[in-house]
Amino acid sequence: MWEAEHDEWFADCPVVLDFAGERLEVNHQKFDDLSITWNSVDVTRPPVWSTSDDFRLVWRDDAPAVLAALRGQRLEAVELLEWAGGDLADGSVAVGLRFPDGWLTLYNALDENGLAFGQLEPEYRRHRLG
């Protein structure tokens, strides 16, 4: 989801990743809520946001650029990650996706989604899926 007027990512809405027509949707909210769904967000329809008068929201598949650079890469692993950094975020859960060029981590950025690219931070406990 993109906030068009300021040309920036809108972190309060789900992150939608398309894998050859199968969409993974990840959304963090509050301090400890994580929603992971498949194919439930219709990105062909205009976004609806409760305060949409304040924002002009659109779906974009080319931003942020670092995320768009993953297009076409093979997903190699999926892991649930638990933060154990000895701080207020201890116990929060993130989703880690490993691609040939590194990790995409979707984490709770205190009531919104956060994205991190590259190597996993050592404070994460890894729980591999499948």
Rank of each mutant, 00 (worst) to 15 (best):
A65H: 08
R56L: 13
L97Y: 10
G86W: 11
A20Y: 02
V26Y: 04
P64C: 05
L24W: 14
W59S: 06
D18P: 05
V66H: 13
L129G: 05
Y124H: 05
L24V: 11
A89Q: 10
L115C: 07
V93S: 08
R128G: 00
D111V: 00
A116P: 03
A4M: 12
L97I: 07
W2Q: 08
H127T: 03
E121W: 05
E22D: 11
T44K: 15
V93N: 03
E79D: 02
V93K: 11
V48E: 14
V95P: 04
R23L: 12
F117L: 14
G118R: 07
D12I: 03
A77E: 03
E82G: 01
P14R: 11
A84F: 07
F19K: 05
E25P: 12
A20T: 03
D111L: 01
E22A: 10
A94V: 00
W103Q: 01
N113Q: 10
D32G: 12
W103R: 02
I36S: 04
H6S: 08
S52D: 15
E79T: 01
R74L: 06
L80W: 08
D87L: 10
P47L: 15
A11Y: 10
P47G: 15
E8T: 03
L70Q: 06
A89M: 00
G118T: 04
D87Q: 13
E79K: 01
D18Y: 11
D54I: 04
V78Y: 02
W49Y: 15
R128N: 00
Q29H: 11
E112C: 08
L17G: 02
W103E: 02
L120N: 00
Q29P: 02
I36P: 07
R128W: 00
Y107E: 12
W2G: 06
E123D: 02
N27M: 10
P47C: 15
F31N: 08
T51K: 15
T105P: 07
C13Y: 15
P122A: 01
L97F: 03
D18A: 04
N39D: 15
R74Q: 06
D7N: 10
L67P: 03
L104M: 10
I36Y: 08
S52R: 13
D90T: 04
G91W: 05
G114D: 03
A109S: 07
D53Q: 15
V15W: 07
S92G: 09
N113W: 09
G96W: 08
V48D: 10
E121H: 09
P64F: 05
T37N: 01
L34P: 06
D62N: 11
V15Y: 07
P46I: 14
P47I: 15
L17M: 12
Y107Q: 06
R125V: 08
N108E: 02
W83E: 10
V26K: 06
L34K: 06
D18F: 10
W49V: 13
L97M: 09
E3R: 11
V16A: 09
L106W: 06
V58T: 12
G130D: 02
L120Q: 00
P46T: 11
R45W: 09
W49G: 05
E25A: 14
Q73C: 08
C13R: 14
F19N: 08
L70F: 14
S52K: 14
N108H: 01
A77S: 08
S40Q: 11
F31W: 07
D42E: 13
N108I: 00
D53L: 12
G72C: 09
D12L: 02
Q29D: 05
R125M: 04
